[in-house]
């Protein structure tokens, strides 16, 4: 049995998900079932961070993955992000790392600098 707090709405139901049958209990609505199953099987997160930049008005450039990545890949992605360095100018949406850590997501800049 895995336990999660549902984040679909502010109520925050405490869900219990059976790992074998994927039966969800503790939910108040149908959306909670879907959320609980996704969290149990393959939790995904959009990763946001910053990388070093030279020549910009600030020393850090904000970045994010352009789609959610598996939660288990977050720290692997952070190791790659720590090695990144860009030179100004950078455009918002510009790809910094393609297919980061084999997740299928690109790391993109989230502002012009």
């Amino acid at each position: 049995m895995k336990e999660f707090i549902c984040t679909v709405c502010p109520r925050g139901c405490h869900l219990k998900v059976d790992e074998n049958t994927l039966a969800v209990t503790g939910n108040s609505c149908a959306r909670g079932v879907e959320y609980g199953r996704n969290e149990a099987v393959n939790p995904m997160r959009t990763l946001t961070s910053t990388i070093a930049i030279e020549g910009g008005i600030h020393r850090r450039l904000p970045v994010r993955t352009d789609r959610p990545i598996p939660k288990s890949k977050i720290f692997e992605c952070m190791e790659i992000i720590h090695q990144c360095k860009e030179k100004s100018p950078v455009k918002a949406g510009q790809v910094i790392v393609e297919n980061i850590a084999g997740t299928g997501a690109n790391l993109i800049a989230t502002r012009n600098m």
Partner: peptide, 25 residues
């Protein structure tokens, strides 16, 4: 918004999850 680099902004207004800098832009 410039320092709020995390996502989750704009769900009501734009129907998508933007980071702070993207929302400001």
């Amino acid at each position: 918004l410039n320092q709020c680099i995390h996502n989750g902004f704009g769900l009501h207004r734009f129907g998508e999850e933007l980071t702070g800098p993207e929302y400001a832009q």
